[in-house]
């Protein structure tokens, strides 16, 4: 099947998606088998096409902000696997110096604004990041990600209203993986098509297949173009699926194995791979080489994390204030 995307795009997608998946699987192993990683841990496995499509539809100076399922988007934005794995380990070399953990990855240089733990809170913050770009007169945009659960927060409605009122260059991306923890979308609202929430604010909206990197890219690219031209925000509901539980400790009694298997039949990485082979963009040997490279990168990130030091004890009272002379209460 002919495609409008280039060989380079497909190979980039494939490698990024494999990196995200292999990183997550390795991290989960280190969590479950060795106890090296602790705390809440939310894997991006199954949702990789979103990160891939969003990356090729944006520029490096465009900002990303998301909720706590943040590993995949952080890797996509260019935070190294080493810094991400070290963060999961809580090491000083992590992308938040071991102070954030799984839910709070950050990369200021990479324009990755985190990793947020209060459901829906980052929707408004993301609009503020976009506000600053408009204020400064740049053409950068902010991709603001949230889950289907966050769509029921008041923050979404307040932010949609403000973002349309002020025509902010923000793309609202609802990664609808169908479950707010254990509660399915149908059980959270009378309105199950989340993209329709945009109608109340006369905001353009789209609903797309999140298992397709092509579909993600095309929809995001349209929204980004509109935002850059000053026409304001778009809501894009991306129907996706997480193969893993809400978090690592989720027994997943709310869904069947058949349902999970059904989605795995439409695996986003397999779909990209099929396009690569169909278009003869790469041979099996070349794909094997990418896989090896990804594997080495992930292994290297583990070694790096294991060998890195813990944050120094003095870090307890650092990064609390920019003011270096703040007189902390210590007893």
């Amino acid at each position: 099947m002919a495609t409008k995307f280039s060989k380079e795009t497909y190979l980039y997608w494939y490698e990024l998606m494999q990196l995200i998946r292999q990183f997550e699987l390795k991290a989960e192993e280190k969590y479950k088998m060795e106890g090296k990683i602790r705390g809440f841990f939310h894997a991006y496995v199954g949702q990789e096409a979103i990160a891939a499509g969003c990356m090729t539809a944006t520029k490096p100076e465009d900002a990303f902000i998301t909720a706590y399922r943040d590993h995949g988007l952080a890797l996509a934005k260019g935070i190294s696997a080493k810094a991400c794995m070290a963060e999961l380990y809580g090491k000083a070399t992590g992308c938040a110096k071991g102070k954030g953990g799984s839910m709070h990855f950050f990369g200021k240089e990479e324009r990755f604004f985190g990793g947020h733990g209060i459901v829906g809170a980052q929707i408004g913050t993301g609009a503020g990041i976009a506000f600053a770009e408009k204020y400064k007169g740049t053409d950068a945009v902010c991709l603001t990600f949230f889950g289907d659960g966050a769509a029921r927060q008041g923050m979404l409605h307040e932010t949609f209203n403000l973002a349309m009122l002020w025509k902010l260059p923000v793309i609202f991306i609802c990664e609808n993986n169908n479950y707010a923890m254990g509660t399915s979308v149908e059980r959270t609202s009378n309105v199950v098509d989340i993209y329709k929430l945009a109608d109340a604010y006369e905001m353009p909206a789209d609903s797309i297949d999140g298992m397709s990197a092509e579909a993600v890219h095309e929809s995001i690219a349209r929204a980004v173009k509109r935002a850059r031209e000053g026409d304001g925000p778009t809501l894009i509901e991306i129907k996706t699926y997480r193969y893993k539980g809400h978090s690592i400790s989720d027994p997943q009694k709310y869904r069947t194995k058949d349902e999970v298997d059904e989605y795995k039949q439409r695996d986003p990485i397999e779909q990209v791979l099929k396009s690569i082979f169909d278009n003869k963009f790469a041979t099996q040997e070349e794909i094997d080489a990418i896989n090896k490279r990804v594997e080495a990168q992930v292994e290297e990130s583990v070694t790096f994390a294991e060998e890195s030091p813990w944050p120094d004890d003095s870090e307890v009272l650092k990064d609390i204030y920019v003011d270096q002379n703040y007189p902390f209460i210590v007893d």
Binding site: G124, A130, K136, M155
Partner: peptide, 15 residues
């Protein structure tokens, strides 16, 4: 909540 969040995001992004 909404405008406080917009201001906080703007502060984190250079304003």
């Amino acid at each position: 909540l909404g405008f406080a969040a917009v201001a906080v995001g703007a502060a984190q992004n250079g304003l």
